[in-house]
Design a protein around this nucleic acid. Sequence first.
DNA 1: CTAGGGTTAG
Length: 370
Amino acid sequence: MPESIVVPDASSYNTAISACDKTGQWHLALSLLNVMPKLRVNPDLISFNSAISACADRWPLALDLARRSRLTPDVVTLNGVISACDKGQEWQLALCFLFGAEVNFRVRPDVISYNAAISSCSKGGRWQAALSLLGAMSLRRLAPNVISFSAAITSCEKGGQWQLALVLLSHMEDADVRPNQISYNSAISACEKAGHWEAALSILSQMRVRPDEISFNACISACEKKGHWELALVLLGQMPQMRVTPGDISCSAVMSALEKGCQWELALVLLGQMPQKAIMPGEICFSAAISACEKGGQWERALSLLSDLRWMRLKPDEISCSSAISACEKCGKWELALLLLSEMPQMRLMPNEVSFGAAISACERAQALL
DNA sequence: CTAGGGTTAG
């Protein structure tokens, strides 16, 4: 019986390249693309577009691929390049590609091109430009969709324009675009970041879709910023009633609120209750609890949490270590502060400004007592 | 299950 040899065709490679994109293995995606011609398989436009997408924030690579393809680019190529600029924090470049698309690529930008460009302006802190793009879409007879509005609302959040975020949210109904959870969550974030917890809670209560964990988490953060730890606890309690399961992030946010309210005991109670609620505390939970102890002058508890964290096979990071060093500093334990600082490299952590700052303060405090 | 866009925590 003759052996049958299966020869992969372009679409097999395309599937593989796409898989590399989804798992963040850009170098593997490029290797696959490079090996195709050697195996007498011609990469097609989908191969290049998938590889461009795999480049993520490496925009020079994405651009190089777009040039090298020698195939006629389509709108997906354009959008992949704009998206690479977006992820690479290059909003000016993103706009150059959007506005130059017809001349340079002979491609007409679509809704996704605009959405990616709005997102890049948002990341670059250019809320005015993001809103101009949203307006320009209608002029170009492109109907903004729920993502266009949500991205524009996010640009308002980044620019501290919470009122504008609310205006955009109400404009969506006029434009016959139904806000989804993400649209509402973006608006809640805008209020949260600007410190308007009342507005954040008002959106939560008026959502026309079921709030999700992120909606609640952003509201909890809004309360946290203004020191309303009681409200943060109330929100956490409301989640199951609304059939939303609180997670690790919800608990971290509540613990931060408790930290601000000097309620370290309650923060530790909450941390202790997490396993019963089937929530696995992550590094950030421990970090929030350590900070709460730091603020409450509980250096022993802070250090014990740091060792619990390692016991749970979580890796301490710069922030949890720095908080523990600060806890020692606040309680006058300068030797312990220095010891922790010196142990950081063994944990493969680079002490940062905060860790050194706390350790230096600890020594200053000791010096003053002499 | 062949390519492009938006949200939360220390």
